[in-house]
Amino acid sequence: MMILSFGGKRSMLSPIDRLFYTSNFSDFLFDNLDDAMCLIDVNFHVLRVNDALKKIFNTDENMENMFFGDASKCAHFARTNKACGEDESCAACAVYTGAVQAAGSGKKISRISVPWEYTENGKKNDKYLQFTFIPLTFFNQTCILISIHDVSVQEEQDRLIKELSGRDSLTGLADRRYFYDVCESYFRTARRGFINLAVCMIDIDSFVSVNDTYGHKAGDSMLKELASVMEKSIRQSDFIARYGGDEFCLIFQYKKTADVLFAVEKLRGQVETHDFVYKAKTLRITISIGAALKPCHSTDALVNRAGSLLRAAKEKGGNRIEID
């Protein structure tokens, strides 16, 4: 049985622990995660980082044994050795404070999002980073695992939500005008190579028959409920809007084409099996989806491509997905 020393204490490891520490297993797990990860001790010194973290901070520097958070960049911290408390304006102190609170919280996981300044091609820029602090205890020694995500697109989306009132009055989703504003923001980010972007156009099959058979109030009720079903089905990083009539638009970030196909097929299936109830009557509907993935020169071109794929799906009988 392997024995390790932590802080002067000797600890015997189980066979599973021995596998973790005596092989490259932990290195493999840490360095092959897509998420940017950092492990620090209670004195806020970096124990290890992975390549994804170096990428998000645009550095090749060896960060191990460095002081995490770099709150020394704050003049107040350098003078008093205390965070300035201006979490919204001082990212360094905000991250440092988050680590301090995580260290003293036991097992409580906490998150903060802050604007982070970085330099690219000699030009200073800001991006929003979300830090998740996860306290861990090994052999009575506390350390903190920190996961870091770039949430710049989501922050921009939230900013637009606050600035604009472009909401569809029936469904509560964003309207067409607001959709184009958000889509343009995603499109600019995609052109810089930070994300892969798909635009999906969604249409209810034979929706006119619902209005003709049950009336327009039934149709409105169905649109509201459909919006709720779709909004719950998508991820937080995706964006859905009512494009007009019974058409909806979905903006989707992805890593692999299979991710898009899985997501839209899940959405199509959930709508197909959902019971829409109106005045004690249970109704079923299906949707057709056109998903445009290929890079286009503009937002309009991407949306038009998705619209063409949607029409192709409906011409083939509906309740299907056309993707390109």
Score class of each variant (00 low, 15 high):
residue 72 S to R: 14
residue 204 I to R: 04
residue 194 F to K: 15
residue 203 D to A: 06
residue 131 F to Y: 15
residue 217 K to Q: 14
residue 242 R to K: 08
residue 320 R to M: 14
residue 159 R to T: 10
residue 10 R to H: 15
residue 37 M to W: 09
residue 324 D to Q: 11
residue 4 L to T: 12
residue 180 Y to H: 09
residue 24 N to K: 08
residue 262 F to C: 04
residue 28 F to A: 14
residue 140 N to D: 15
residue 99 A to M: 14
residue 93 C to V: 10
residue 38 C to W: 00
residue 143 C to D: 05
residue 262 F to D: 09
residue 10 R to Q: 15
residue 252 F to W: 07
residue 151 V to N: 04
residue 31 D to Y: 14
residue 26 S to M: 11
residue 169 S to I: 02
residue 250 L to S: 08
residue 63 M to F: 03
residue 216 H to P: 00
residue 128 Y to E: 07
residue 131 F to Q: 05
residue 17 D to M: 12
residue 30 F to I: 12
residue 128 Y to T: 03
residue 269 G to A: 11
residue 40 I to A: 01
residue 220 D to M: 02
residue 132 T to I: 03
residue 21 Y to W: 13
residue 23 S to A: 00
residue 40 I to N: 03
residue 89 S to I: 12
residue 171 T to N: 06
residue 279 K to T: 11
residue 172 G to E: 06
residue 176 R to S: 06
residue 238 D to A: 02
residue 293 L to R: 05
residue 239 F to D: 02
residue 260 V to C: 10
residue 104 G to V: 07
residue 222 M to K: 05
residue 298 S to Q: 05
residue 62 N to E: 10
residue 236 Q to M: 08
residue 211 N to Y: 10
residue 178 Y to H: 15
residue 29 L to A: 04
residue 319 N to Q: 08
residue 78 A to G: 12
residue 23 S to L: 08
residue 137 T to C: 07
residue 155 E to W: 01
residue 109 I to R: 13
residue 302 L to Q: 14
residue 113 S to F: 05
residue 97 T to W: 00
residue 98 G to M: 00
residue 36 A to I: 04
residue 161 I to P: 01
residue 80 T to H: 09
residue 307 G to L: 05
residue 69 G to D: 03
residue 193 G to K: 04
residue 46 V to W: 07
residue 41 D to S: 06
residue 188 R to Q: 12
residue 191 R to W: 04
residue 20 F to T: 06
residue 117 E to L: 12
residue 72 S to A: 10
residue 12 M to H: 15
residue 164 L to M: 10
residue 292 A to N: 09
residue 42 V to A: 15
residue 301 A to I: 02
residue 220 D to F: 03
residue 89 S to T: 14
residue 151 V to L: 04
residue 93 C to W: 10
residue 290 G to M: 05
residue 118 Y to H: 11
residue 129 L to A: 07
residue 302 L to A: 09
residue 167 R to Q: 12
residue 265 E to V: 03
residue 295 P to Q: 07
residue 174 A to M: 14
residue 201 M to T: 09
residue 9 K to I: 14
residue 58 N to S: 15
residue 58 N to I: 13
residue 217 K to F: 12
residue 8 G to E: 08
residue 71 A to G: 03
residue 32 N to T: 10
residue 286 T to N: 10
residue 131 F to G: 02
residue 53 L to D: 10
residue 55 K to S: 11
residue 158 D to S: 13
residue 18 R to Q: 14
residue 243 Y to V: 01
residue 211 N to D: 09
residue 310 L to D: 11
residue 161 I to L: 02
residue 231 E to I: 04
residue 108 K to S: 10
residue 298 S to A: 05
residue 315 E to H: 04
residue 312 A to C: 09
residue 59 T to M: 03
residue 244 G to F: 06
residue 65 N to H: 08
residue 40 I to K: 05
residue 272 E to L: 14
residue 91 A to I: 01
residue 219 G to F: 06
residue 322 E to R: 03
residue 161 I to N: 06
residue 222 M to V: 15
residue 184 E to A: 13
residue 138 F to S: 10
residue 148 I to F: 01
residue 260 V to L: 02
residue 302 L to V: 09
residue 104 G to K: 13
residue 282 T to A: 12
residue 39 L to A: 08
residue 136 L to I: 13
residue 35 D to W: 00
residue 92 A to N: 14
residue 185 S to Q: 03
residue 175 D to P: 01
residue 77 F to P: 08
residue 253 Q to R: 07
residue 119 T to G: 04
residue 72 S to H: 15
residue 308 S to H: 13
residue 250 L to N: 03
